[in-house]
Design a protein around this nucleic acid. Structure first.
Lengths: 258, 258
DNA sequence: AGTCCGGCCTGGTACATACCAGTCCGGCCC
DNA sequence: GGGCCGGACTGGTATGTACCAGGCCGGACT
């Protein structure tokens, strides 16, 4: 068991490509993550000292890799006992994978249908969210998100024109365009609430007025704190949900039931 | 500025109480967190080397503290430039504060009304979620959560009897009881979806049938992976929402719009 | 005044060492 | 067989050092 794992990881570490800029600890944590995902929960890892010795790296570097895995919830660590594969949990809501990747993870085919991509005056909520000067225009992108050809969400994104002068340029990914323009979002915040479908919602989502909605408002920021995007997404509540994991904090479990 | 900050932190580190079991890095990160929360976003911290020198600790320890702050989204770090206070974001959904604390943060008074606390046979979903043997009973706790005296959520928790032999013992906090019994949950997962109120929901929540609900299912685990709790909470969708932040990962921003 | 470059400062990675707190397991005793 | 204890092993904390990649700022030059 442990011999096989160490041999596989050692071989993978030894044949790293020159274009791979990941530090050792990142490479090790990625390799260990793959192993952990393929094995049963509860599997014990080799000790830190053994990994360090047999892989020819420092124990501190091994610990750094395990710190990453622990932060991602993939290992459970306890002083005096070897680290073990954690019970496997779903992806964290706070680090949502791309919408398309998320659907693929669920075995579905992603798609989209553009409703509009235009330069407009902002709605009051958009102006407020984006800290806009009076009469400042925005790029607004509206589309229906599909899963296996079925509509599951209506998405409306607003971006200041300074960052997206031509909304027509956006293909699949707004973020790719923003990154190319040198203004990648680095942080964001979301509000999740429940609502009921309007007539328009129902029409676009092939549902009925009054059906449940999950409404997500998202605001994203540049590295210097300026808001770069404000998006509202209305998910068909009968077709979609969010999964998230709960992390211990400061050795104490924080919970709704405190 | 930096002199004041270093003096305050140095003084606080020097007068630590013997009962304080936190390691140095944790103490430093807690102290820095408090400073960062009280100052404007964008404020620059002293360099790692200066903090280490003037506080009389190792730079590696300083880095460890800053790693924690970075993971919590309180600082932005960039090679070659001093770390800065990040734009302040709301609490992470993945580390929900206690329900009561959350309400207090919103300036509301928390409360509750017990519907039942009893030993029962589990519903199929509960049996599945808790990996129960056939005919194994559970403790089930059902209550309405109040904010300023108004009902906002219906909560139904199921716990295997092995961990909670007497549900009547639960006052405000199920988790406190579990911790006292030596079986504290250390991890969990949640599913968030939208729904519509039933007649019973509407009656308990002073609303109307068909009104929107935010439904949260939570499953929590012991350190060894055994499930210890399965809870469904039905929030009045017109009174409550979730706030969450988005984190960069691996230097690349993950997003729904990828 | 504007631009460029070099030096210094900054954060990031990796290594090594020492020591402490906790866990596990085998051996011994009842 | 069961319980206890000690030793070996484990993870956790803290320190120090070396070096690299990137950013900032002041001085020189145009």
């Amino acid at each position: 068991m442990a011999e096989d794992l160490i041999a596989r990881i050692g071989a993978a570490l030894a044949e790293v490509s020159p274009s791979d800029r990941r530090p050792i600890y990142r490479r090790l944590s990625d390799l260990l993550a793959r192993e952990l995902r393929q094995g049963p929960a509860g599997t014990r890892l080799p000790s830190e000292r053994r990994l360090a010795r047999e892989l020819g790296i420092s124990r501190v570097t091994v610990r750094r890799a395990l710190d990453e895995l622990s932060a991602e919830g993939l290992v459970l660590r306890r002083r005096g006992a070897r680290s073990a594969a954690a019970v496997r949990l779903e992806k964290r809501l706070s680090s949502l994978t791309g919408f398309s990747d998320e659907l693929r993870n669920r075995g579905m085919r992603p798609g989209q249908r553009w409703l509009s991509r235009q330069v407009v005056l902002p709605a009051p909520s958009e102006a407020l969210a984006l800290d806009l000067a009076p009469a400042e225009k925005i790029a607004r992108l509206e589309r229906v998100r599909l899963a296996d050809g079925h509509p599951i969400a209506i998405e409306r994104a607003a971006v200041p024109l300074a960052y997206l002068p031509d909304p027509g340029l956006v293909g699949d990914s707004l973020y790719a365009i923003l990154a190319e323009g040198g203004t990648p979002p680095v942080r964001g915040a979301q509000r999740i609430r429940a609502g009921l479908m309007s007539g328009r919602d129902a029409e676009l989502l092939d549902s009925r007025p009054g059906a449940p909605l999950l409404i997500v408002e998202r605001r994203c920021f540049l590295a210097d704190g300026r808001p770069v995007e404000f998006t509202e997404t209305r998910y068909d509540g009968e077709s979609y949900d969010f999964l998230t994991e709960l992390q211990p904090q400061n050795g104490t479990y924080q919970s709704e039931m405190a």
